[in-house]
């Protein structure tokens, strides 16, 4: 499932990755906004939403008409609140249904917008964590092998932290390109993708910071690489967060995405004839 989603999203990003990240975000938000509206139309009770909104409006008008009658005003207010609750109930179902694809989309976007690839000369920390903590012998049996393609150099010996069940190394990126970190864990090979970009590269690229051992939620949150299995809990590489700005304003990429997709959705719901 992860592999399919990652391939699909990579295909979507293929024509966008060369654009300024702000523009690719605008396009993604627009497409997402439209897609969410269309999906909303089919998973929501459009007639019910329309009816609830109309009732709320009619009760508000009644409040205005009978403003000299306190009892009538309270009654209309209660009816308006009741219609509003119905409206919220009609919204809840599509919200729950749409939550799943939105979360999956955000996870995919995090792979592209969340972190910067390494650049040649940059040093970073690589960590391999085992399921079991305080097992020094198991940690001693973990090795990071030298690069076969001169893409990185291992700069430090293995540093073992039994209390965390971790082995850490410091590596230095040498040459740009997508490559693989190769480990031996108890004699078995383990690999982890490593993204190194040229210093002048402006294109977005997929950066997988962590490959997890097992577990449903861990796997969902780190979809770019398959689970490792065995005794390994995770392999991770520290990357700098990718700075993101749009129209000259620095903000988290996901905040820009939410704002833009909501703006597009509100702007287009009328022309698309969707009740929301």
């Amino acid at each position: 499932m992860n592999a399919i989603l990652t391939s699909l999203f990579s295909a979507v990003m293929a024509p966008l990755k060369g654009l300024d990240p702000a523009w690719s975000m605008v396009i993604l938000s627009l497409v997402t906004g439209v897609a969410m509206l269309v999906a909303f139309r089919y998973v929501s009770n459009q007639r019910g939403i329309k009816r609830s909104k109309a009732r709320v409006i009619s009760e508000l008008l009644a409040i205005r008409l009978f403003k000299d009658d306190p009892w009538m005003t309270i009654k209309c207010l209660g009816a308006a609140l009741k219609s509003n609750l119905f409206y919220l109930r009609y919204m809840l179902t599509p919200l729950v249904v749409l939550l799943v694809p939105v979360v999956l989309l955000l996870i995919q976007m995090e792979q592209w917008y969340g972190s910067e690839p390494l650049t040649p000369g940059q040093t970073t920390r690589v960590a391999l964590a085992l399921d079991k903590k305080d097992d020094v012998a198991a940690l001693d049996a973990v090795k990071l092998l030298p690069a076969t393609d001169d893409s990185y150099a291992v700069e430090s010996p293995a540093m073992r932290i039994p209390a965390l069940g971790e082995v850490n190394w410091r590596i230095r990126a040498k040459n740009p390109g997508d490559t693989v970190l190769r480990f031996e864990v108890g004699g078995k090979p383990v690999e982890k993708r490593l993204a190194i970009a040229a210093p002048d590269q402006t294109d977005l690229s997929l950066v997988s910071t962590t490959r997890v051992g097992s577990g449903f939620f861990d796997a969902v949150l780190h979809p770019a690489e398959s689970t490792i299995g065995g005794t390994v809990a995770s392999v991770s590489v520290d990357h700098h967060a990718r700075p993101f700005s749009i129209f000259g304003i620095e903000m988290a990429w996901w905040l820009a995405f939410f704002i833009l997709s909501l703006v597009f959705a509100f702007a287009l719901k009328g022309p698309l004839g969707i009740q929301a």
């Binding site: 040093t123 920390r125 960590a127 430090s156 010996p157 293995a158 540093m159 073992r160 932290i161 209390a163 965390l164 850490n168 190394w169 410091r170 520290d238």
Partner: peptide
């Protein structure tokens, strides 16, 4: 600060950063 006496190394965890150093090294 995490210490591995055998490797003569330490890891300094501060804020969101984790810095690995060997004895006698300056970090970036």
């Amino acid at each position: 600060i995490w210490v591995d006496e055998r490797a003569k190394m330490a890891r300094i965890d501060v804020g969101d950063e984790k810095v690995l150093l060997r004895v006698g090294e300056w970090s970036d």
